[in-house]
Design a protein around this nucleic acid. Structure first.
Lengths: 221, 221
DNA sequence: GTCTATATAATGATAGAC
DNA sequence: GTCTATCATTATATAGAC
C-alpha cells in the first residue's frame, strides 16, 4: 500500500478508488463510472475485474479490514479516542481514509464492520484488563462494556465530525478541533464529570431493586 | 403527531412514511414508490405534494427538527447518554424513529443535522454550567467541548448500535444492551477510567510545551 | 386531490472488438 | 487486459384524465 498510484495494477487502482468513494460518499451514492474515472479506467473494466458492485465492495472490505486489523495489533493502546485519532493525524492520507471507510461500513452494518468492531473491542478489553492488573486503570463492573464504550467514543468522533466541529465554531474537523477535544476527554477519563457518586449510587440502587423480585410492584407472580 | 394514521391528510401520511423510510434505510436507498406504498398513495402524489425527493427530505427535516427540539427543551438533563436513550426506551415508537432520522441526517451532514447538533450541544452546555455552578458537576477546562463529547456519546450509541450490540454478545440493540452500557458509562462519568492523573498531566504538559515557542525544535522562525 | 401512464435520466451489467 | 457500445432495469419526474 505504499507504492505510487502509477505503479499499481489497474485492479488495485480500481479498488483504491472505490475505497475512497465509498468512504467519502457511502456505498449507495457511489456509482461505478465515478470509481472508474478516479481510477483512470473504463466502467466496463471495473465489472470485468470484480464481477459486480457488491463483489467490489467485498474486495474493499477485505483489503481495509486486513490493513486496519494489522495496524491495530501493532500499536493499540488504552487511550480510547487518542489511539485512532493519533494515527488519524500522523497519517492523514491513507489511514484516515480506511477508518472513514470502516465508519461507513458500521453505519451500513456490513459483516466486515462487525469483524472490525469485534477486533477493536477485543483489543481494547485486553488493554483495559492489563491496565487494571498493573494498577494504572480503575477496576470496572463490566470491562467488556467499558471497552465497547471506548471504541464507541473513538469511532463516533470521526463519524460525526462535521456537525460537531461546527458546534465548536470551526468550519470543519481538523487538528484544532481534535486538540480541543483531547483535554476534556482526558479529564473525563481521569476524574469523571460528576462531583460525587450520587448519580452512580442511585443507578446501582435502581438496578438492584429491579433485580430483586420481592420489591417488584407485582410480587404475586 | 398524536393522531391516528387514518385521520391524517395524505400529505402528512406521505411525510411520516418518508421519515420512517429515510430513518431506516437512508435517503439514497429509499425510493418514492416505497414511500408511496407505505403511505397508501400513488408515487405521483408524492411529487405532486412535495415537488421532488429533495424537497420531501427538507419537509421531513423541518418536521423532525421541530419535534425533537421542542422535546429537548422540555426534558433535557445532564446525564449524557441517558437522556436520549431513556426517551428511546420509554417512547419506543415515534421518538426513536425521529432520533434515528436525525442520526441518518448527521451521517449525511445535512443542514437540519447541524441545527439539531447545535441545539443538543447548547442544551448540554447549559446544563453542565448549571451543574458546575451548584456543585454537582466538576469544573472543566472547556465546558463547550465537554458538551460536544456528551452529545457525541449519546448519538453514537444509536448510530453504531448493531455492531456494538453484537460485540456484547447480543443479536441486536435493545433494553438488555442498554442496561449493560449504563453502569460503565456512569462509572466513567463518576470517577473516570484511569487510576491516577498521570496521562492527563502528561497531555497538559505536552500541550503547554507546544504552545511555548521557546521550546520549539525550529526556534529560528 | 388523486390516479394512471409515460417520458427521461442514471446506473449496474453484458458483448464483442482490439 | 482494456475499451466502446449497448442493454435492461430502476427511479425520478411529468402530463393529463377523473
Amino acid at each position: 500500500m505504499c507504492s505510487a498510484q502509477s505503479d499499481l495494477t489497474a485492479q488495485a487502482k480500481i479498488r483504491n478508488a472505490a475505497i475512497a468513494h465509498f468512504a467519502r460518499d457511502g456505498f449507495q451514492k457511489t456509482n461505478l463510472r465515478a470509481i472508474a474515472a478516479t481510477a483512470g479506467v473504463s466502467a466496463g473494466l471495473v465489472i470485468h475485474h470484480f464481477g459486480s458492485k457488491d463483489k467490489l465492495r467485498s474486495a474493499c472490505d477485505d483489503h481495509v479490514l486486513r490493513t486496519l486489523v494489522r495496524r491495530a495489533r501493532d500499536d493499540a493502546r488504552p487511550a480510547g479516542m487518542q489511539d485512532v485519532l493519533r494515527e488519524f493525524m500522523s497519517n492523514p492520507e491513507e489511514y484516515r481514509l480506511q477508518v472513514q471507510y470502516m465508519v461507513r461500513a458500521i453505519e451500513e452494518d456490513t459483516p466486515a464492520a462487525a469483524t472490525f468492531v469485534d477486533t477493536m473491542v477485543d483489543e481494547s478489553e485486553e488493554i483495559l484488563r492489563a491496565g487494571i492488573a498493573d494498577g494504572s486503570m480503575r477496576p470496572s463492573s463490566d470491562v467488556r462494556a467499558l471497552a465497547v464504550l471506548n471504541v464507541l467514543i473513538s469511532l463516533a468522533t470521526l463519524n460525526m465530525a462535521p456537525p460537531l466541529a461546527r458546534a465548536l465554531g470551526h468550519e470543519r474537523f481538523g487538528p484544532e478541533v481534535l486538540r480541543r477535544m483531547v483535554l476534556p476527554t482526558l479529564e473525563l477519563y481521569t476524574h469523571g464529570m460528576y462531583a460525587d457518586d450520587a448519580p452512580l449510587k442511585a443507578a446501582q440502587a435502581a438496578w438492584e431493586a429491579a433485580q430483586d423480585p420481592s420489591n417488584s410492584p407485582n410480587k404475586d407472580e
